[in-house]
């Protein structure tokens, strides 16, 4: 599906492209190399009209030792959602922030920074959003975050 759009993405991403698929009509999954994310994102916005950020986040894969980040972008012209992905190293995750391309991902990236520990370079306001300001107990959405102490504290009350 969406072969013409996929072709255009292939050509504009060039060598940075890792994986591309479109399992259903309104979804396009694009995976790129982490150092080319900003470049590809800007061209996706300018040339293909993917302009409205609707979600962003990340998934932790401890076995593969990566964190897979994604940005979901809706296009107001062709009415499809593009999910831009990239993998960053799990031990020192760091990536260029996409706020300069889509301002609306600001809060999503801030949340990902807080809950998954991914450093977004160039993000205007990286400070705690959901967790307490003095939180030092790690990154809750990582898979190795241990819930046992909290269960002992709050879970069983009888």
């Amino acid at each position: 599906m969406n072969e013409d759009i996929l072709d255009r993405i292939r050509s504009l991403a060039g060598e940075a492209l890792v994986e591309i698929k479109s399992p259903e009509d309104k979804r396009i999954y694009v995976k790129v190399k982490p150092d080319a994310v900003v470049d590809v994102a800007r061209r996706l916005k300018d040339e293909l009209g993917f302009d409205m950020p609707i979600s962003a986040g990340g998934t932790d894969y401890p076995k593969k030792k990566v964190i897979e980040l994604f940005w979901a972008i809706w296009s107001s012209t062709i009415n499809k959602v593009l999910i831009l992905k990239c993998e960053v190293d799990r031990d020192s995750p760091s990536i260029e922030s996409l706020t300069s391309v889509w301002p609306g991902v600001q809060k999503f990236e801030r949340e990902t920074w807080e809950l998954l520990g991914v450093d977004f370079k160039g993000h205007p306001r990286l400070k705690p959003l959901l967790l307490p300001e003095d939180w030092t107990e790690g990154y809750p959405l990582r898979k190795d975050f241990d819930l046992k102490p909290y269960r002992a504290k709050w879970g069983d009350r009888i």
Partner: peptide, 19 residues
């Protein structure tokens, strides 16, 4: 589920209030 990411509407709308 391995991972669920929920992006609610208010989370996005708050950004506009800030801007």
């Amino acid at each position: 589920p391995y991972r669920i990411k929920i992006s609610p509407a208010s989370f996005r709308n708050f950004y506009t209030i800030e801007m």
